[in-house]
């Protein structure tokens, strides 16, 4: 799966979660860019991502993903292990 494909999957998960079809994620998107993406929805998003890809992030990493790109890369790293 390419990074672009993962990004598309993340976009779908978040759109479903927030009920907003207009969301478009890019590698440099940060949480503040999406109005409804608060800390609560963030956790749901992370768990949904974990379920989708069958991985588990470390809590410290969850806290410090600087942007969507970092999540995409972390998925890659986790699946590569």
């Amino acid at each position: 799966m390419t990074e672009q494909e993962r990004l598309t999957t993340l976009t779908r998960i978040l759109s479903d979660l927030l009920g907003d079809e207009s969301i478009e994620l890019a590698m440099d998107t940060v949480r503040e860019d999406i109005p409804e993406w608060d800390s609560f929805n963030y956790i749901n998003f992370i768990v949904a991502v974990e379920a989708e890809f069958g991985i588990k992030f470390r809590i410290v990493d969850v806290e410090s993903f600087p942007n969507v790109g970092a999540i995409v890369k972390a998925i890659g790293a986790a699946r590569g292990r």
């Binding site: 998960i13 979660l17 009920g19 609560f40 956790i43 588990k56 809590i59 806290e63």
Partner: peptide, 24 residues
């Protein structure tokens, strides 16, 4: 506090197959 707690609770709930948030 909040994130570690919800992360763990959500994972557990998911593991048990109970509904979590997501979708509509």
């Amino acid at each position: 506090i909040y994130n570690p707690l919800t992360l763990n609770l959500t994972r557990r709930r998911m593991a048990k197959g109970k509904p979590i948030f997501g979708g509509r």
